[in-house]
């Protein structure tokens, strides 16, 4: 079975992107490198977390605002807020 990329799913969704104001931030990237099993890479349902040359990279544009990454980041290495009012995912059906 060929699994479609998550981007193809996210493409169906409606977002109001708050350019330049990501609502989630990795506090200390060094802590992601050392000894963390990086559950964010597997658990984020929007695939916002990827690995680039050993570095965890976060792009919040496709974020579904579920909160999973914050809960599985047992190192508490995320600064996690909701987007400003009116921005982010706007579910058409929910």
């Amino acid at each position: 079975m060929s699994v479609p990329k998550v981007e193809e799913k996210l493409f169906q969704n409606r977002y109001v992107i708050d350019a330049g104001h990501p609502h989630i931030r990795i506090v200390d990237p060094a802590r992601c490198r050392s000894g963390c099993r990086q559950p964010c890479l597997v658990c984020c349902p929007a695939g916002c977390y990827t690995l680039d040359a050993g570095e965890v990279v976060l792009i919040t544009d496709g974020c579904l605002e579920c909160g999973t990454c914050r809960v599985v980041c047992l190192a508490r290495n995320l600064e996690w807020k909701y987007p400003r009012g009116g921005y982010g995912i706007q579910f058409k059906f929910g």
Binding site: Q12, C66, F93
Partner: peptide, 9 residues
């Protein structure tokens, strides 16, 4: 036809 993908805790 898939029209939305959502996630929630």
């Amino acid at each position: 036809e898939m029209k939305e993908y959502a996630a929630h805790l």
